[in-house]
Design a protein around this nucleic acid. Structure first.
Length: 416
DNA sequence: TGATGCGCACGTT
DNA sequence: AACGTGCGCATCA
């Protein structure tokens, strides 16, 4: 994790640049940090990368160039409707929903966020891995996309859109299939159903939260998998949020669940639809997006479309989704059980941030809450012991802490 | 010369 | 219409 001091410097710098309407790019950030604090650009760059991995800072490709966003300040423009979340499993909710918190909205992750980032393309680490490809290649899921797969030529260039092209990325993204080799940063156009991509992330991965929803959820693979980022693309413009994986997360094991019917689901129990960092997203996107989250094989999709009205189609998807979710959850639970005790303070903070509470993640970090501590936390600890606002605290406790604890302890009981 | 301020255009919601 | 973003230019130190 990055040092708190650097985090503050960088976030302040990003805020400062934004306030003066200057693009918060690497060059400006490094320059300002050096000027203000005397820190070497290389060091700043390094710390910035860490922040990106922690999702404290979002790296986005906006109008053709890379920009950095203060995740805590990314505001979602539209609120998602809560009802959408109703059907989700507790786990899912935990993961997604909250994202919505006002601030969180910002959270890079949540879908909303992503939405609002519209034009931004998430850039994953230097190279973005494309998630799209993953779909196809998936089997190998891990490897592919991740390590840096390809530089993202288009990623940035693509963006070239600077021209204002409305959707610079659209092309690339589009049908994921369209571009086989593509750029690492692929975006999925809205057309891409989110569901399609399976994410390499492990369900438990905090980061995972964000990704999904995005339409393109890219798989964001934390650490182990190299740069996988979450990408989201709004149909419209091409926004990709980039979330970078953090190298340290234990949860990285990926899990892809493949259904018999061939549908690949994201394992993350976390939400299939949620995010993102993207992302970024917010976890939940509007209702309209939900359907996308689940991907059906094209045939099935066609069937549904033919025989059902939209509502039925959506419901059917939910059913399928739930079914898949249950499977995913079991996988997730195992992963969680194994990893939660191993989560470091940074992992917990990343999780909280990824869940849509970047501002509150710092409190967990400050109080040095690691996986073990998280399991011991009581409601009052979260509500009053972290000095965070009540609203976010309640959401964090009910949707995340409690869920994680429950999942963890239930598993233990099962083992006994 | 570099930092900063800000009008304005653009894109999305 | 409101809002976020950032280019491009003017101004300041």
């Amino acid at each position: 994790m990055s040092e708190p001091m650097y985090r503050d410097w960088i976030l302040d710098t990003i805020d400062s640049l934004r306030s003066r309407k200057a693009r918060p790019d690497l060059e400006r950030i490094c320059r300002m940090v050096r000027r203000r604090h005397g820190s070497a650009p290389e060091q700043t760059s390094e710390e910035l990368e860490k922040l990106i991995q922690e999702q404290t800072v979002l790296k986005v490709n906006y109008k053709g160039s890379i920009s950095y966003r203060n995740a805590a300040k990314v505001v979602r423009r539209s609120r998602k409707k809560d009802d959408h979340t109703t059907k989700r499993t507790a786990v899912e909710e935990a993961n997604h929903s909250d994202l919505s918190n006002g601030d969180s909205a910002l959270g890079p992750i949540d879908q909303d966020e992503t939405e609002h980032l519209e034009n931004e393309v998430p850039v994953s680490m230097e190279t973005d891995s494309t998630m799209e490809e993953e779909e196809e290649e998936q089997e190998g899921a891990d490897e592919d996309g991740h390590e840096g797969s390809s530089p993202s030529p288009e990623g940035e260039d693509a963006v070239q859109g600077g021209s204002g092209a409305a959707h610079p990325y659209s092309a690339p993204c589009s049908p994921s299939g369209s571009r086989p080799g593509h750029s690492p940063v692929s975006d999925c156009p809205s057309t891409c159903k989110t569901s399609r991509r399976s994410s390499p992330l492990s369900p438990s991965s905090p980061l995972a939260l964000r990704q999904n929803d995005c339409v393109c959820d890219s798989a964001f693979c934390p650490a182990d998998h190299g740069p996988s980022g979450m990408q989201r693309n709004t149909g419209s413009g091409a926004l990709k949020t980039i979330v970078q994986p953090s190298g340290t997360c234990p949860w990285v094991q990926k899990s892809l669940v493949k259904r018999e019917d061939g549908v690949r689901m994201e394992e993350s129990g976390l939400a299939s639809d949620q995010l993102v960092p993207d992302c970024v997203d917010e976890t939940m996107k509007g209702p309209d997006r939900r359907p996308k989250t689940l991907s059906f094989p094209s045939d099935d999709c066609a069937k549904y479309k033919k025989g059902m009205d939209v509502a039925s189609y959506v419901m059917a998807q939910d059913d399928v989704k739930n079914d898949v979710k249950n499977r995913e959850i079991s996988v997730k639970k195992e992963t969680l059980r194994q990893n939660l005790m191993l989560w470091s303070v940074a992992d917990v903070a990343t999780y909280i941030s990824a869940a849509g509470f970047p501002e509150q993640a710092g409190a967990f970090r400050t109080q040095e809450i690691d996986g073990k501590s998280l399991l011991l936390m009581q409601r009052s600890d979260v509500l009053t012991g972290l000095s965070i606002r009540l609203g976010p605290a309640l959401k964090i406790y009910e949707r995340h802490v409690k869920v994680l604890q429950r999942t963890h302890f239930l598993d233990e009981e099962d083992d006994l």
